[in-house]
């Protein structure tokens, strides 16, 4: 009786897990191994036969100044976005957990940037940043910051193009960071704060000695998730600038796509994409450390 199939926890655990594990091995682990194999081959869209070429793809990638430019851009893009997303996400989370009328509507409006498919919202921004019709330029002209008929060419100048791409990305991911941090804020046991209040701790003291330390691990998880997301994202870049002007906003992911899918050079594209991995691995280790700390707490 006790050994009925449906009662054997060990076997049941295997049966429950196997489908998920197989699915992920087949469609994540195997393609990952394939990506490494492609990076060492001359596979292309025109000639899909596999020939081993060793490190030649990597040599060609390193010789290409665009690669180094993309690598640098990726770091700038990720670094600046992350700081802004975490800071603004925390501010937004504090607003969203406060009590006020019309909260439902405000939450709905705040969620929009994140729940909308990124390619669609980026298209809206493409017009908001248009070289002639940009409403932002219109406002600047209205207040006299720009002369009549003058434009900023948001996506046409290297510095401004990067600023635009980062701004749109931050705008899109901040609501997600806020939701994750709301979880952290909600999780702080109420009595800790009440106790501190009873003990006479003021607002700032409670903020710095209780709230921030308690939220920090969750904020760190949000930050690392966001960093991975940002680091590997190309949708905003792709829709807004296609990496331009002159590769000023090209990032590793978009460059790999350009080479591997549009240029048809699968080997080189794979070699570029693989560069994401060591950095992701570092992020993974960092996340695990933080998660472990939370579990102890």
């Amino acid at each position: 009786m006790a050994t009925r199939l449906a009662d054997r926890a060990g076997l049941l655990a295997w049966l429950f897990l196997l489908p998920s594990v197989l699915y992920i091995v087949a469609l994540v682990a195997v393609p990952f191994a394939l990506a490494i194999a492609f990076a060492l081959s001359d596979v292309s869209a025109g000639d899909p036969s596999y020939d081993y070429v060793g490190g030649r793809n990597f040599e060609r990638v390193f010789d290409d100044p665009v690669f180094w430019r993309s690598l640098g851009n990726t770091f700038v893009f990720t670094g600046i976005s992350m700081v802004l997303i975490v800071v603004l996400g925390k501010v937004l989370a504090n607003i969203l957990v406060a009590d006020f009328r019309g909260k439902w509507l405000v939450r709905f409006l705040v969620l929009l940037p994140w729940t909308t498919p990124v390619a669609l919202s980026s298209i809206s921004w493409l017009w908001l940043l248009d070289s002639i019709y940009s409403p932002i330029d219109w406002v600047l002209r209205f207040f006299g910051f720009l002369g009549p008929g003058e434009n900023l060419y948001w996506l046409g100048q290297p510095g401004l193009a990067m600023t635009s791409v980062i701004a749109v990305h931050v705008w899109r991911l901040t609501p997600l960071a806020a939701v994750i941090m709301m979880a952290g804020l909600v999780a702080i046991p109420r009595d800790i704060e009440e106790q501190a209040m009873v003990d006479g701790a003021g607002y700032w003291r409670r903020m710095f000695e209780i709230k921030i330390p308690l939220v920090l691990p969750v904020a760190a998880v949000a930050a690392l998730f966001g960093a991975v997301f940002t680091f590997t994202d190309m949708a905003v870049v792709r829709v807004l600038t296609r990496g331009g002007p002159n590769d000023a906003t090209q990032v590793l992911a978009s460059w790999a796509f350009y080479r591997g899918i549009e240029g048809g050079d699968v080997g080189q594209g794979a070699a570029i994409a693989l560069f994401l991995f060591p950095l992701l691995l570092a992020a993974a280790i960092a996340i695990l450390r933080v998660v472990r700390r939370i579990e102890v707490w």
């Binding site: 994540v28 990952f32 492609f38 790999a256 998660v291």
Partner: peptide, 29 residues
């Protein structure tokens, strides 16, 4: 199970192997 902790972490880490790393080989698949 004794391995459920590590496996949970492993599944979590899959999230860190993003589409931008896999799309080329997956498109061949």
């Amino acid at each position: 199970r004794p391995w459920s902790g590590p496996l949970a972490v492993a599944i979590f880490l899959v999230y860190l192997v993003p589409p931008s790393l896999l799309f080329l080989s997956l498109s061949r698949v």
